[in-house]
Design a protein around this nucleic acid. Structure first.
Lengths: 241, 241
DNA sequence: CTAATAGTGTCTCTTAGACAATATATT
DNA sequence: AATATATTGTCTAAGAGACACTATTAG
């Protein structure tokens, strides 16, 4: 009894402001494909530090609005892009004394995959192309160049053994378009017959009966993602050559 | 010029104590194998909240001592076990308003794999066996039952396609002992010939020439881990039956 | 008809799983 | 010699890579 009274008392008197605590934030690396190239979304900072510099979308947890850290990531993404439920996955956390000039900082990082046509944003955001090493060519705020590079590596890695790439495609797409997206992300060519076998066996897409797309030469069958939001994982990896 | 002066001023006046921030901590799930069973290390809490309850080792970042979040995890592990550089990997972060009675809390979670013989600890720590579902049978502090369950799932998953299990073995071991450890973690039997082919091809262990171990019947060749601290990833998963 | 891309058939290669044969200590 | 476990050999199966063949549509 007295122990739980003690605990009650402890909690009533607890004040986090008495302690030296780190800054804790969230960052989201949003990937898409535009003009046969991987792009990430960057956002121009409106406040210090790094005011007016470009950075990945993110910010602090709102202890009132956000029920969980995933909520924070979703909220930030929605605020910047008006986009609601794309593929969003927690990637990891970076925390050290140097990354933020304000002091010791921890950021929980996420990465998202979106179809560019579904995203709208204002003057403070833009898409930024990545080279084969995951580099933007711009000097971003904080350690965000590094962050994007790591996220790109993770994306490329995961594309080797999952159906994750589906999320950059529009509602309807052909198998050639899907393969092309894989090739852009993986940075090499895939075997056509093998790719088709693999993706069809995974049961993550379905034919749109009677719907086909005009290409430069003959028509191609259109497909869509199966309702099920899950990512399929293969037992073997593929290699792009 | 004036912009950077502004930023300098901003940083001089910045005080995190003016903001509503979450608690940010680190938790480490330490796995080992004892008596043919997976165990995790738990620690009896000395302070509120959940005073005297058992929990995974962890705690707050020390902004003075810790240069990075990995340092925090290593320090906590060292404090509890006297053990310095086992296999330690960041797993992910859990953050929500409910998990800590003190308020909004984020914890960066790690998992470690150790050989039990290398670990020493006092009265405030103990090993706790896990069942096939990753359950301890004890009611732990915070959401740590859930945390251990998730970590166990991750461990089991990773054992299917990596050499991670090597880290629970002592300096010298036989292939049968290694296979046995995999089987305990995976919760099923593996094919002997296939297992040996796979592990030997990965070049992560080497024969100790002339050294063998007496078993109940014939002797078995002893092996050790190759210096290289890296974990090897296979291109295909294995299944325990 | 020709060009170009869509779509398929089939052979090979790698590696895991099954299963059994052989090797070697201990008793 | 009998037993039990260590160690190896070999066949099968699944799935990826290579490559070529067929199908279809615009021009």
């Amino acid at each position: 009894m007295s122990r739980s009274l003690d605990e009650k008392q402890f909690l009533e008197n607890y004040d986090i402001h008495q302690y030296d605590v780190p800054l804790t934030s969230v960052d989201v690396v949003v990937f898409t494909i535009i003009n046969e190239q991987v792009h990430v979304l960057i956002n121009q900072r409106s406040d210090f530090p790094f005011k007016n510099k470009w950075a990945t979308p993110g910010g602090f947890i709102d202890l009132k609005k956000d029920k969980s850290i995933d909520d924070t990531a979703k909220r930030k993404l929605k605020e910047k892009t008006g986009y609601d439920a794309p593929y969003l996955e927690q990637m990891g956390s970076i925390g050290n004394a140097k990354r933020d000039p304000r002091g010791w900082s921890v950021t929980v990082t996420y990465f998202a995959l979106v179809n560019a046509d579904n995203v709208t944003f204002g003057e403070d955001c833009k898409w930024c192309g990545l080279n084969d090493e995951g580099e933007t060519g711009e000097k971003l705020a904080f350690d965000h160049n590094e962050l994007i590079k790591d996220a790109f590596e993770r994306l490329r890695n995961k594309a080797q053994y999952s159906t994750i790439v589906l999320h950059v495609l529009p509602e309807k797409f052909t198998l050639s378009e899907l393969q092309n997206s894989y090739e852009i992300i993986l940075g090499g060519k895939l075997n056509k017959a093998g790719f088709r076998r693999r993706i069809l066996k995974a049961n993550v897409i379905e034919e749109l009966e009677g719907e086909s797309k005009q290409t430069a030469t003959r028509t191609a069958q259109l497909y869509r993602k199966v309702d099920d939001e899950e990512v399929h994982f293969y037992m073997r990896e593929i290699y792009a050559r």
